[in-house]
């Protein structure tokens, strides 16, 4: 999902769908990616930033469930990058919690990132969350070797846009 300034109605609907999930479903990487960025955006723009603590708690729980080997999951990394983009940095302790999780994942993923991780890493560099000198060369090189397939077209397109922006 590209970052666009979604309208309040849309964000509210996404928020309501998220509430229907149980705890395990909420922490699943795919659902993290589907709902947390929108939840953060709604909370920052309309919700009084009352849910940033809960968002950070949810990501910590997801990290625990993924274990050390699972933190390079593409959806998980994309969820972190997209949520960080929308959070209010003034709730720094919660923002920082997600940033540290992303850094942890980045260190592991940078050697051979899949297309979702490529998107997340290049976006994180653009958001000043990762050192460009350390991460960008390897991630750009990985993207240049990546082929777009029917199953990954959406993610490839997102990564392609970040690749284009990282060259500027």
């Amino acid at each position: 999902m590209e970052y666009v300034m979604a309208n309040e109605q849309y964000l509210k609907q996404m928020r309501a769908q998220f509430d229907l999930l149980d705890e395990d479903e909420q922490a699943a990487p795919e659902n993290l990616y589907l709902y947390q960025p929108m939840r953060a955006e709604y909370d920052a723009r309309f919700g009084g930033r009352k849910e940033h603590r809960a968002i950070a708690t949810l990501f910590r729980r997801a990290r625990e469930k993924l274990g050390d080997e699972g933190i390079t999951d593409g959806y998980y990394m994309m969820a972190l990058a997209d949520t960080l983009e929308r959070m209010d940095k003034q709730l720094y302790e919660h923002y920082r919690a997600l940033e540290d999780l992303l850094l942890e994942a980045a260190r592991k993923a940078v050697c051979s990132p899949g297309v979702q991780a490529q998107y997340a890493l290049m976006k994180a560099v653009r958001l000043n969350l990762l050192d460009p000198e350390k991460y960008l060369p390897a991630v750009r090189a990985a993207f240049e070797k990546t082929r777009c397939t029917p199953g990954t077209a959406d993610f490839y397109r997102l990564a392609q846009e970040e690749y284009r922006r990282s060259a500027l």
Partner: peptide, 24 residues
């Protein structure tokens, strides 16, 4: 003044900017 700059080894951070008690 950037709030937080990670050290090169990513083990620490260098703080410069600040806003209302946070490194921003």
């Amino acid at each position: 003044l950037p709030g937080v700059t990670r050290t090169t080894d990513e083990a620490g951070e260098y703080l410069l900017g600040s806003w209302e008690g946070n490194p921003l």
